[in-house]
Amino acid sequence: MSPLATALRSARRTARCASSRSPTRSPRGAPPQPRSPGSTTPLSAVPWFWSDQGDIKLQIAGLSSGYDDVVLRGDPESQQFSALYYREGRLIAIDAINAPRDYMAVRRILEGDGSVPREVAADVSVQLKTLVPARA
Protein backbone atom coordinates (compact mmCIF):
# COMPACT_ATOMS: atom_id res chain seq x y z
CA MET A 1 0.00 0.00 0.00
CA SER A 2 1.37 3.44 -0.93
CA PRO A 3 2.15 5.99 1.81
CA LEU A 4 -0.67 8.17 0.47
CA ALA A 5 -3.19 5.33 0.69
CA THR A 6 -1.98 4.44 4.20
CA ALA A 7 -2.29 8.06 5.36
CA LEU A 8 -5.76 8.35 3.86
CA ARG A 9 -6.97 5.12 5.47
CA SER A 10 -5.55 6.10 8.87
CA ALA A 11 -7.09 9.57 8.72
CA ARG A 12 -10.50 8.15 7.72
CA ARG A 13 -10.45 5.84 10.76
CA THR A 14 -9.56 8.76 13.02
CA ALA A 15 -12.33 10.91 11.53
CA ARG A 16 -14.89 8.13 12.03
CA CYS A 17 -13.87 7.72 15.67
CA ALA A 18 -13.90 11.46 16.32
CA SER A 19 -17.29 11.97 14.69
CA SER A 20 -18.85 9.13 16.67
CA ARG A 21 -17.97 10.98 19.91
CA SER A 22 -19.26 14.37 18.73
CA PRO A 23 -22.07 15.61 20.99
CA THR A 24 -23.67 17.41 18.03
CA ARG A 25 -23.51 14.50 15.58
CA SER A 26 -26.78 13.99 13.80
CA PRO A 27 -27.95 12.22 10.64
CA ARG A 28 -27.62 14.23 7.45
CA GLY A 29 -30.68 16.38 6.99
CA ALA A 30 -31.52 16.50 10.70
CA PRO A 31 -31.45 19.95 12.29
CA PRO A 32 -28.09 20.70 13.90
CA GLN A 33 -27.84 21.43 17.60
CA PRO A 34 -27.66 25.10 18.69
CA ARG A 35 -24.33 26.48 19.91
CA SER A 36 -25.59 27.38 23.35
CA PRO A 37 -28.92 27.84 25.11
CA GLY A 38 -30.68 30.81 23.52
CA SER A 39 -28.33 30.97 20.53
CA THR A 40 -29.86 30.83 17.07
CA THR A 41 -26.57 30.03 15.31
CA PRO A 42 -26.45 26.27 14.66
CA LEU A 43 -23.39 24.06 14.72
CA SER A 44 -22.60 22.11 11.58
CA ALA A 45 -24.02 18.61 11.48
CA VAL A 46 -21.27 17.72 8.99
CA PRO A 47 -18.22 16.14 10.64
CA TRP A 48 -14.87 17.34 9.34
CA PHE A 49 -11.24 16.46 9.90
CA TRP A 50 -7.82 17.48 8.63
CA SER A 51 -4.32 16.12 8.96
CA ASP A 52 -0.91 17.11 7.66
CA GLN A 53 1.03 14.01 6.60
CA GLY A 54 4.43 15.33 5.50
CA ASP A 55 3.82 17.18 2.21
CA ILE A 56 0.23 15.97 2.10
CA LYS A 57 -2.64 17.99 3.54
CA LEU A 58 -5.65 15.72 3.96
CA GLN A 59 -9.04 17.33 4.60
CA ILE A 60 -12.26 15.35 5.06
CA ALA A 61 -15.85 16.54 5.37
CA GLY A 62 -18.85 14.27 5.79
CA LEU A 63 -18.87 10.53 6.33
CA SER A 64 -18.29 8.29 3.33
CA SER A 65 -19.46 5.04 4.92
CA GLY A 66 -22.15 3.47 2.78
CA TYR A 67 -21.14 5.29 -0.40
CA ASP A 68 -22.01 3.64 -3.70
CA ASP A 69 -20.15 5.96 -6.08
CA VAL A 70 -17.01 8.07 -6.01
CA VAL A 71 -15.81 10.83 -8.34
CA LEU A 72 -12.15 11.79 -8.55
CA ARG A 73 -11.28 15.40 -9.35
CA GLY A 74 -7.69 15.86 -10.41
CA ASP A 75 -4.88 13.36 -10.78
CA PRO A 76 -3.89 11.24 -7.76
CA GLU A 77 -0.36 10.94 -9.19
CA SER A 78 0.03 14.72 -8.79
CA GLN A 79 -0.90 14.42 -5.09
CA GLN A 80 -3.45 17.21 -5.60
CA PHE A 81 -6.94 15.79 -6.02
CA SER A 82 -10.22 15.18 -4.28
CA ALA A 83 -12.61 12.25 -4.01
CA LEU A 84 -16.30 13.07 -3.75
CA TYR A 85 -18.47 10.30 -2.32
CA TYR A 86 -22.10 9.71 -3.28
CA ARG A 87 -24.91 7.56 -1.95
CA GLU A 88 -27.96 7.10 -4.19
CA GLY A 89 -26.85 10.04 -6.33
CA ARG A 90 -26.43 12.44 -3.38
CA LEU A 91 -23.10 13.91 -2.26
CA ILE A 92 -22.21 12.71 1.26
CA ALA A 93 -18.48 13.36 1.75
CA ILE A 94 -15.17 14.59 0.35
CA ASP A 95 -11.56 13.56 0.87
CA ALA A 96 -9.29 16.32 -0.41
CA ILE A 97 -5.55 15.84 -0.83
CA ASN A 98 -3.80 19.20 -1.23
CA ALA A 99 -7.08 20.54 -2.70
CA PRO A 100 -8.35 23.05 -0.12
CA ARG A 101 -10.66 24.88 -2.55
CA ASP A 102 -12.58 21.69 -3.33
CA TYR A 103 -12.71 20.83 0.38
CA MET A 104 -14.06 24.21 1.52
CA ALA A 105 -16.66 24.37 -1.25
CA VAL A 106 -17.96 20.85 -0.63
CA ARG A 107 -17.96 21.32 3.14
CA ARG A 108 -20.14 24.43 2.77
CA ILE A 109 -22.40 22.64 0.29
CA LEU A 110 -22.84 19.73 2.71
CA GLU A 111 -23.50 22.11 5.62
CA GLY A 112 -26.31 23.62 3.56
CA ASP A 113 -27.68 20.12 2.90
CA GLY A 114 -26.85 20.56 -0.79
CA SER A 115 -25.32 18.31 -3.39
CA VAL A 116 -23.25 18.49 -6.58
CA PRO A 117 -24.32 16.50 -9.62
CA ARG A 118 -21.81 13.73 -10.39
CA GLU A 119 -21.09 14.98 -13.92
CA VAL A 120 -20.38 18.50 -12.60
CA ALA A 121 -18.07 17.15 -9.88
CA ALA A 122 -16.11 15.20 -12.49
CA ASP A 123 -15.48 18.33 -14.59
CA VAL A 124 -12.30 19.91 -13.18
CA SER A 125 -12.92 23.07 -15.22
CA VAL A 126 -15.89 23.81 -12.90
CA GLN A 127 -14.88 25.60 -9.72
CA LEU A 128 -16.94 24.01 -6.97
CA LYS A 129 -17.10 27.29 -5.05
CA THR A 130 -19.46 28.60 -7.75
CA LEU A 131 -21.97 26.00 -6.54
CA VAL A 132 -21.94 27.08 -2.87
CA PRO A 133 -25.27 28.66 -1.91
CA ALA A 134 -25.11 32.26 -0.72
CA ARG A 135 -25.24 32.65 3.04
CA ALA A 136 -28.31 34.32 4.43
Rank of each mutant, 00 (worst) to 15 (best):
Met1Asn: 11
Ala7Ile: 00
Leu8Gln: 04
Leu8Pro: 02
Ser10Trp: 03
Arg13Gln: 13
Thr14Gln: 11
Arg16Asn: 13
Ala18Gly: 00
Ala18Tyr: 08
Ala18Met: 03
Arg21Pro: 00
Thr24Tyr: 11
Arg25Val: 03
Arg25Asn: 09
Arg25Ala: 15
Ala30Pro: 02
Ala30Asn: 06
Gln33Val: 15
Pro34Leu: 11
Arg35Met: 04
Arg35Phe: 12
Ser39Gly: 15
Ser39Ile: 12
Thr40Met: 14
Thr41Glu: 11
Pro42Ile: 11
Leu43Pro: 01
Ala45Thr: 08
Val46His: 00
Val46Tyr: 01
Pro47Asp: 06
Trp48Asp: 03
Trp50Gly: 09
Asp52Thr: 15
Gln53Asp: 08
Gly54Thr: 07
Ile56Tyr: 07
Gln59Lys: 06
Gly66Lys: 13
Asp69Leu: 02
Asp69Pro: 00
Val71His: 07
Val71Lys: 02
Gly74Trp: 13
Ser82Asp: 06
Ala83Leu: 10
Tyr86Lys: 05
Arg87Phe: 14
Glu88Asn: 12
Gly89Ile: 07
Ile92His: 04
Ile92Glu: 00
Ile92Arg: 05
Ile97Ala: 09
Tyr103Asn: 01
Met104Ala: 13
Arg107Thr: 04
Glu111Gly: 09
Gly112Trp: 05
Gly114Phe: 10
Ala121Val: 08
Asp123Lys: 08
Asp123Tyr: 01
Val126Asn: 02
Leu128Gly: 06
Lys129Gly: 02
Leu131Gln: 06
Val132Tyr: 12
Pro133Met: 03
Ala134Phe: 11
Ala136Val: 08
